[in-house]
Structures are given as C-alpha cells and as structure tokens.
Design a protein around this nucleic acid. Structure first.
Lengths: 215, 215
DNA sequence: TAGATTGTTAATCGATTAACAATC
DNA sequence: TAGATTGTTAATCGATTAACAATC
C-alpha cells in the first residue's frame, strides 16, 4: 500500500528534510568526514537532533549508539530511500526561462536527477540546443517517453497550457509532477503533484514587512 | 511586536493560503462574482471551509452571517494584509535564466509585486534589456536601492555567490529575502528568509514513485 | 568499565477541522 | 420569521521535541 518499503506513513516535512540531509552528507563526504552524530547535524544544519533521529527512524536503524552515523553509508541509504541512488530520468515541459534554468541547474545532476528530455511547443525553440539537450516538440512527449521512461515531469508552461501538458505527461507514463504554473491541476488520484508558487512565497515575505513605508 | 496589526501569531500555512485566496478572489472579481460563502471557497479551491474562516479570523471579521463575503472587499483587505494593496518594489539579484523567468512572470504584476531592479555581476549582461528592465551592476545595489526602496530581494545567483549578495542586499535596506540558492543563508535575526529548493521538491516526488523500475 | 550516542516512547506544541451559538 | 452562514470554541489530528533505557 505504502509507496516506501516500510509501513508507517512518512510525514512530508520528514521527506523534505531527508533531501537536506542528503545534500549535507554529500558535502561531508567530499570533505572526507567519516562519522557524524545527530548533535553534529544539529550544529551544522540547525535541524534538531531528535528530529534528525526521528526522521531516520521511519526507515530503519542507521547509526551506532555511542558512535554516530557512517557518512558514506547514510548518504547511500537516504539516496536509496529517495530513489536517487541511480539516475532518475525527468522530463521538462516548457523551455522558457524557467525550464532553461532547471535544465542548466548543476545541483540536479549531483543528486542523480537527470533531465532526459525537454519539450516546447514553440517551433522557434524546437530543435535548438539548450546546453547539450535538444528541445523536442511537445507533440512527441508520448513517443519520446516510451524510450526515456521518465516518471517525473516538471511543468514550466504558462497557466493556460498547464492542464493540457499535465494530461499529456500522464498519458506518457509520468507518475508525479512538479508544477510551476499557478493553477490547481486536475489529475487522477494515483498521480502526486507538488506546486511551487512564487506568489505564495513572496506573499509570506511581504506580510512580514513592518507596516511603515519608510525603511 | 507582531509585524501585523493584530496580536496573535499567524501560522505560516495561513499566510500561504491567503495568497491562494487572493488569487482566487481576483479571478472571481474578473468574472463579476459579488459574493461568496466559505462553502463556495471549499468547493472551488479544495480548502476546507472552516479553515478559510479560521484563516480570516486572525485578521478580523470579513463576512456577514447568512450572506457570505463580498468578493471585492475581501480581495482588497487580503491584499492589504499581505502589503500588496499598492505596488511592492522588489529587487532581483542574478539575471540568469531563473532571474529572467521571474522578471518576465506576468502573475507578479497582477498581484502588485513590482520588480523594480535586476542586478547581475556579468559585464556581458549589465546594460542589457530584459523585457523593459535594464540589468544593472551588482556593485550598485546599495545606491540604486536608495532610490527604489525595495525591501524584498530575490536571490537567483549560484550557491557560491549567494551569501555575498544577501549581505549586500541587507546593507541596502532589504528586510526579507526569497532565496533560490541551495545554501542556508546567515542573516541577522530581524531578516526573514524563505528558501525555495528544487531539490527538496523533486526528492519528495521521487520518494512517491513506486519502487518497481518498469512503468 | 565509563562515556557517548542511538532509537523510541511520552510530552508538548501547533495546526486542522467539526460543532454551534450568534446574527444577518 | 426561517434559512443560511458567519466567527469562534472545543475536539482532533499530526508533527516536533524532550527524556531515557538500550547499546556500542
């Protein structure tokens, strides 16, 4: 039933932090640190030590009492949990500025996310190289994905086009969607969608400005 | 003490939803809808009716029992709460693909967010027009902001440069920061930072893929 | 062994939702 | 007035954090 191997439902905030831990561990590994304790993690990331241990406990046992965690092993196991222990193919739909930013984002590769194909419907863009990736015709999403097998789609098209490309992506075998368009996508229950809303982010920040106009 | 006029601390999720309500109300207003009830909101946005009423209750009374909410009035009051009832100037630092995507994002203007200046340190970009906005030299953030008075900065530079530009922005009078760089910014306590992490978003989605490799 | 640190249980905290008296 | 819907209180749910026995 559960999408992970272990049974209890994992809180979303835990999954988000897992990505943070992974990044942190990759850096530690690069600095040849071999072992860390949950207290070290708290010191260096600001995330509560008990929280760190609790987060991991959803997935099994990772550390040695009295010793701590092996950086290399923990890194590998978290990558496994997040299914990025091997290259995870992704399709990007919409090769405007935002799509291009994602295509060119170095952090993705480091975390084994692999943008395997990028699509647009603008004939002026189709066939162009973006980095070393050729922009493909949006009409070919299905046929291309038969080869590529991406189960993650990132939608970077305008709001008016978003539902349409989401439908196409799902038809092409995509299981989860990262949506940057400011609309609520209607998708089958089995499809997981996450929305990134710049407006929401800015609104929260704007609220926190003190009310006086002058600085 | 509190940054808003009313006393009780407002949960972040409430603020995020406020942005959603605002967008929804702007659309309703465009369709000449005059009144809505919390039940209507639930039907059309999926957000629980009690949640909607509770969210608003942090800021006062907005509706008429037995009637509902006046769309136009509620829209105006939420905009006021979020401090986007008048144009809110923003600076964007880093005019790469991501920065350019933000500069060209039409939703911002509709919500009274105004990108008043964009900076980069690449001489090849400085002086170029991006839409109708000229890219300025990152070295001029302080002098430019003396005119513009932006209290919101969006950081779209690589991780290695992010802390530096954050420091500069704060020096220039910025109070809150939207950070796209995958690092934890060190800032004075009074400064509010929100981070957008593409890696985190993708990791949560990737986790939800079922484990079998085949589609 | 003594000291350190884990994994987990229990306590706390905060956010969501249901229920309902007040009121248009 | 009767019906509808608000604003708010109380109940529920879930996530964070503290405390500690187990263990290296």
């Amino acid at each position: 039933m559960n999408s992970s191997s272990s049974s209890p439902k994992v809180p979303i905030p835990t999954l988000e932090r897992l990505a943070t831990y992974l990044r942190f561990l990759i850096d530690l590994e690069a600095s040849h640190v071999e072992t860390i304790s949950s207290t070290d993690v708290e010191k260096q990331t600001g995330i509560n030590a008990a929280q760190f241990r609790k987060d991991l406990s959803y997935f099994g046992e990772f550390g040695k009492p009295g010793v701590g965690y092996n950086v290399q092993e923990l890194q590998a196991r978290i990558a496994r949990i997040l299914k990025i222990d091997q290259l995870q193919p992704i399709m990007v739909i919409g090769a405007g500025n935002l799509g291009s930013a994602l295509i060119g984002y170095p952090g993705l590769t480091e975390h084994k996310f692999h943008i395997a194909a990028a699509f647009d419907r603008d004939p002026a863009k189709i066939g162009c190289l973006q980095g070393n990736l050729m922009i493909l015709d949006e009409a070919d999403v299905c046929t291309v994905n038969a080869d590529i097998g991406a189960r993650i789609a990132i939608i970077c098209v305008p709001a008016s086009a978003a539902q349409g490309v989401a439908d196409t992506a799902i038809l092409a075998g995509v299981k989860v969607i990262l949506n940057f368009a400011p609309i609520i996508l209607r998708v089958p229950e089995r499809i997981v969608v996450r929305n990134v809303s710049f407006l929401q982010e800015l609104a929260v920040l704007s609220y926190h400005l003190s009310s006086d106009t002058k600085k």
